[in-house]
């Protein structure tokens, strides 16, 4: 039963207020893209034991999507940030580095 702070409205939201949305920072591949790129975009997923970046929606709250950095093994939430970004903010990455030295996710570290 997680609690995650919605960065949009500031509420420390109960899991029951939230709707999980899977891996964050996917790049969309549309018409004309290569089969393998489209397949990867739609289906292949990071599934790490450890630091993960993912999407959530504060569905029974302010309704906004946001991103969270969370550990899939301890459930620690390192931080949340706007959905309107293409990569995790540096401050958050630094914070994760303090707690999980040497972490990587995709090509982010």
């Amino acid at each position: 039963m997680l609690t995650i702070q919605c960065p949009h409205c500031g509420v420390q939201a109960e899991e029951t207020e939230l709707s999980p949305g899977g891996e964050a920072h996917l790049s969309r591949f549309g018409p004309g893209s290569e089969d393998q790129d489209f397949e990867a975009y739609l289906f292949f997923r990071e599934n790490p034991k450890g630091v993960h970046f993912e999407r959530w929606r504060h569905v029974h709250g302010c309704g906004k999507w946001f991103h969270a950095a969370r550990c899939t093994v301890t459930m620690e939430v390192f931080g949340t940030y706007s959905a309107q970004t293409t990569e995790p903010p540096k401050a958050l990455r630094d914070k994760i580095s303090e707690k999980r030295p040497g972490w990587t996710w995709r090509d982010i570290a």
Binding site: L2, E15, P20, P48, E54, T72, V73, M75
Partner: peptide, 10 residues
């Protein structure tokens, strides 16, 4: 609905 390796759920 979220990635989890803890063998416990919500």
């Amino acid at each position: 609905g979220y990635n989890n390796y803890t063998q416990r759920g919500s």
